[in-house]
Write a protein that binds this DNA or RNA. Sequence first.
DNA 1: AGCCGGGTGTGATGCTTATCACAGCAGGGT
DNA 2: ACCCTGCTGTGATAAGCATCACACCCGGCT
Lengths: 239, 239
Amino acid sequence: MLSPYGLEIVESCLTCKLREERIFCDLPNSALQAFENIKYATAYPKGAVLFVEGQSPRGIFVLCKGRVKMSICSTDGKTLILKIAEPGEVLGLSATVSGKPYELTAETIDPCQVNFVKREDFLRFLKEHGDACFRVAEQLSEKYNNACHEVRSLGLSHSAAEKLAKLLLEWSGRNGEAAKLEPRLKLALTHEEIAQMIGTSRETVTRLFAELKKRQIIQSKGSTLLIRNKAALKLMAGA
Amino acid sequence: MLSPYGLEIVESCLTCKLREERIFCDLPNSALQAFENIKYATAYPKGAVLFVEGQSPRGIFVLCKGRVKMSICSTDGKTLILKIAEPGEVLGLSATVSGKPYELTAETIDPCQVNFVKREDFLRFLKEHGDACFRVAEQLSEKYNNACHEVRSLGLSHSAAEKLAKLLLEWSGRNGEAAKLEPRLKLALTHEEIAQMIGTSRETVTRLFAELKKRQIIQSKGSTLLIRNKAALKLMAGA
DNA sequence: AGCCGGGTGTGATGCTTATCACAGCAGGGT
DNA sequence: ACCCTGCTGTGATAAGCATCACACCCGGCT
C-alpha cells in the first residue's frame, strides 16, 4: 500500500518486521492485538506538526518511519531543539500519561509514518496490559535520561565549542558504523538548526566549523562530514 | 520510635498518614502490602549521599521526610543543581527502571527518612502490580516535565537575571501560601547553591540580589525574602 | 576576648559570544 | 539566463559574565 507522501505504509503492527528492535513495540501478542485495535496508522509530509508545546495532550504518536524534530520555543521566537526522534520512539508520552500539556513541539523533518492513539484509549490500554505499562516506564526513563544529558550539556559547558564538540561526538557515536578512528557522518541539519541544538547563534556555529576545518579536526565534502582528529574533539568536549 | 538523627520514623507505609497526598505512595492495599515487604526503612543525617551520578542502579529511594539535593557535576568540579526533591518523590527511579547508571547525584540537605527498595525486588514488584507500574509512569512523567523546564530555563534565557527571576517566581509560587501580591519565602540556600541552580557564578548571584534590592523589587530580613514587586520580576523573567 | 571559617559584598579585567550588517553562493523555478 | 530564497562566510561592536582578588561580617569555638 502506498500513502500520500510516497511512504510504503506498514499497515499492521502484528506483521511489522521492525518490531523486535524497538523498545516499545515489541509487546506480547495479546497486548499487541489490543494496541492494533486502538491505533490509527497515519502518514505526514515533511514539515508537519504533530503537536505543539502547551497543547493539552490528545494522545501518543508512535513513530514508525522518518525523523521528528522535538523542540521548545521561547516567547521571543528563540528555538531550542532537544532531540531528533528516530523510528521506534513514542512521542507525547509523558504529557499523555500525566495529563499535563505537551512540553515539546514535534515537527516532522522527513515524510513520516505514525501510529496515533487517543489518550483515553491509551490509558485504558495501559491499565489492562501491565507489560505495556512497563514498556512505557522504560521509554519515559529513556526520555528522562536524554533530557538530563541535555541539561548537562547546556548547564555545565563553558563554551559553544565544547557543546559543538560534544554534539559531533554523539552523532559519530550514534552512526557508529565502524570507522572508529575517522568516523564520517551525514550532516542533515543546517547551521541554524545545529545552533538551536546547542543553544547558540548561527554565526557562532559557522565560525566554529571554519575553525575546526582550519585546525584539520574535521573535513567536509558536500553534506558528509569526516572527523579526522577524534582525540582533539574529545579534548574540546571537556577532558 | 526514634531514629539516630532525631527523626520520628514512620515504620509502616500501611499506617502512614501522609500517604494519600503522595502520587506514588497512594497504592491499593494489595500493592502496598507487597511494597511493605520489600522496602527497607532507613534514615540519613544531613549531608548524606544516597547515590552518585554514574553508579549502576542499586534501587529506588522513596523520600518520606526531609529534602534531597539532586545535582549533576562536571569533570572540572562545576555543579548544577537540578532540583530539591520533596517528600513523596521517588529518587533513582529512571535509572532503576532502565538499568542505566544514575544520571544524578542525590544528597540530603535535611535529616531524611527514606524507604529503599532493591532493584530486583522493585522490578519484580512492578511486574506483579500493574497499578504501581502506572504510578511509576506518572512519576517519571513528572520528572521528565521537570527536566524540560530546566532545559528551557538554561537554554532559552538570555541572561542570568532572567533565570534568577524565574527561580524566585517558581519558589514563591511553590510556597503558594496566599500572599499573592507580596509573597514571602524562606531562603534556605546559599548564594553559591542558587548559582548552581541557575548555572551561573556565585558573584553574579550576589550582584543580582543587590540590584534587586536597590530597585525595591525584593527585600530581605534574615533568611526571609519578601517579593515587593512581582510584576517587575515577571518582566525580568521574560515577558 | 580572640580567632576561625563559611558566607557575603565589590572592583578590575578580559574572554566569549550575541547581534547587526553585508557579501558570496548555491539550487530551483520560470 | 534570470531572479529568488535560503544557506553560508566574515568583520565590527558591545554586552554579559566568569574569574581573580580582596574586604567584610557574623556565629561558633576555645
